[in-house]
């Protein structure tokens, strides 16, 4: 028996490493996978926007966000959770505020990642790491590092960040926001109704979304 013991130990560890790695990989993949009906890029009234969730969802949540705004960062994870829980349609629009030094660059970074199909991943990463790059003297270097982590084509990412196309996309979102009265971030519309500021927090938002779901589907 002792003769076979090292073989058994090595095989068990190999199986544990491969099996554990595969389990962890599948768990991460399913957590990151967009919902069944998700579109990372879509069209709303002829505009190109970032959309998650089905077009016929009972509730549409439209957010005007600034990646450097702390309350937006606090809402990012709850919105992701609500999107999955209620199969919401979530639309994200850029609204970088001038008082935030790196907000515009962050918006460009998210849009540039979107050009390679990874807008939402960059969106989540920018919010998760908000405290880090917000205080950095060279936020762009960090955005490049994030792009590297997301395995984007870095040359293309850098070019896209500086492209007029991406900058115009951000301006379009800002114009749209300004046209419907958006002044601060986060501003969130649920089925085209603006939510009051006191509900824009991780405790208030789920209750409002639940109420909107009940209103949209009174029988269920």
């Amino acid at each position: 028996m002792r003769r076979f013991l090292p073989f058994i130990i090595v095989i068990v560890v190999a199986l544990l490493a491969v099996g554990g790695g595969a389990y962890f990989y599948l768990a991460k993949r399913s957590a990151n996978a967009p919902p069944k009906f998700a579109k990372t890029e879509g069209e709303v009234a002829g505009e190109s926007v970032h959309v998650l969730g089905p077009a016929n969802a009972a509730v549409t949540l439209e957010e005007f966000g600034d990646f450097q705004c702390p309350p937006c960062g606090k809402l990012s994870e709850p919105i992701n959770h609500l999107q999955k829980q209620y199969n919401l349609r979530v639309i994200y629009r850029e609204f970088p505020l001038p008082m935030h030094a790196h907000a515009k660059d962050a918006a460009f970074a998210a849009e540039a990642a979107g050009r390679q199909g990874r807008f939402w991943q960059m969106h989540d990463l920018l919010y998760r790491e908000q405290a880090v790059w917000s205080n950095s003297t060279d936020a762009r270097a960090l955005f490049n590092a994030y792009a590297g982590m997301l395995q984007l084509d870095l040359d293309r990412f850098r070019k896209d960040m500086d492209s007029t196309d991406v900058q115009q996309q951000v301006e379009l979102d800002q114009h749209r926001g300004a046209a419907i009265g958006v002044k601060n971030t986060p501003t969130i519309f649920l089925n085209n109704e603006a939510l009051p500021p006191n509900q824009l927090n991780p405790d208030g938002l789920p209750a409002v979304v639940e109420a909107a779901m009940k209103k949209a589907k009174p029988s269920s």
Binding site: R29, R118, E129, V132, W133, A145, G148, M149
Partner: peptide, 20 residues
């Protein structure tokens, strides 16, 4: 998996793990 490592607020960690 395309996930990003938890770097615990370290910008350097991203610079290294995101580098070529």
């Amino acid at each position: 998996s395309g996930e990003t490592a938890v770097c615990g607020g370290s910008p350097d960690c991203f610079r290294v793990l995101g580098s070529s």
